[in-house]
């Protein structure tokens, strides 16, 4: 029995603590990633581990580059990332600034603002599906009432409407976390900086542009990459709300991956889409990892 309290063996204790995580990562992340690359290189419908395997081929990637579906989903994903990311960041920052003010009931306000984050995606989606219902949905009623539209919007069958419906739900569900993260960033800006700026005669806008934004820049960077990746990854909202339709107008890379693999049972093609998504995500997250590399020691 090794005595781990001995200074000679303390480092071994560290490795021992790390072992479960390393083994787990190897088994459930690294191996599956390698396996998915392997699957993407085989012409298989339902992938299995062990047993017969197909010879390696680039067929799936050839399909990918020539498939209109793939390019469409790439375009849909990009549009969605920009819409959801941009809007979440702007209203997230506004909300963070708001609940960072000093007023009574502030902690209660924070509690409410972040609440949608805790609501499961499926639940959030079915609520919105009902609110956006084309016959009896409260949103169509409100839009008609104010006179913004003169006919109920068909969120189910109109491509543009469906796309924005998905974006709505994503923003409602995702932006609270953005504002919480930005709030944490705001709170780490020392009050003295603002006092010094006030002494120097800086007005509210100058304080915002010369102190808040620069200090918040790293957090903003991290947050926008996180939001981007979240939109890339998201499955439940789109799948439950529109199933990727109508006519592919909400089919992101994520949905396409799933559809190919588990609706059409073309796992080889699905895996190819997934691997490409992974590569794109890796490029995007380089920004984030670069920023964080220093703090990881």
């Amino acid at each position: 029995m090794i005595d781990f309290s001995s200074p000679r063996h303390r480092a071994k204790f560290g490795y021992l603590l790390l072992a479960p995580a390393v083994i787990m990562m190897a088994l459930i992340i690294i191996y599956p990633i390698l396996l998915s690359v392997d699957i993407s290189l085989q012409d298989v419908r339902i992938a299995r581990v062990g047993g017969d395997r197909e010879p390696w081929t680039l067929e799936n990637y050839r399909w990918l580059t020539s498939s209109a579906e793939f390019w469409n989903s790439l375009w849909v994903t990009a549009k969605m990332v920009l819409t959801v990311g941009g809007i979440s960041l702007i209203i997230g920052l506004a909300t963070a600034l708001l609940v960072n003010q000093k007023f009574r009931g502030r902690s209660l306000a924070r509690l409410f603002v972040a609440l949608p984050w805790a609501v499961p995606e499926v639940v959030a989606t079915v609520i919105w599906a009902w609110m956006l219902d084309s016959s009896f949905g409260v949103i169509n009623w409100a839009l008609l009432k104010i006179g913004l539209v003169d006919q109920a919007i068909q969120f189910g069958s109109n491509s543009t409407a469906a796309f924005f419906a998905v974006c709505f739900v994503m923003i409602w569900k995702g932006y609270p976390l953005v504002s919480i993260m930005l709030l944490a960033g705001l709170q780490s800006i020392p009050e003295e900086q603002y006092q010094a700026a006030r002494v120097d005669g800086a007005n509210v806008w100058q304080r915002f542009f010369y102190i808040t934004l620069p200090s918040l820049a790293p957090v903003l960077g991290v947050t926008s990459v996180m939001t981007t990746l979240w939109v890339f990854r998201d499955f439940a909202i789109i799948y439950v709300l529109t199933q990727g339709g109508p006519i592919g107008s909400t089919t992101t890379l994520s949905i396409l991956t799933f559809e190919q693999s588990f609706a059409f049972f073309r796992m080889g093609q699905g895996a190819a889409v997934g691997v490409v998504t992974l590569v794109i995500c890796a490029f995007i997250s380089r920004a984030l990892v670069g920023r964080f590399a220093n703090s990881v020691h």
């Binding site: 005595d3 781990f4 309290s5 001995s6 200074p7 000679r8």
Partner: peptide, 9 residues
């Protein structure tokens, strides 16, 4: 000789 003994020992 405590070179390899733990702090508690």
């Amino acid at each position: 000789d405590v070179t390899d003994a733990g702090p508690g020992k």
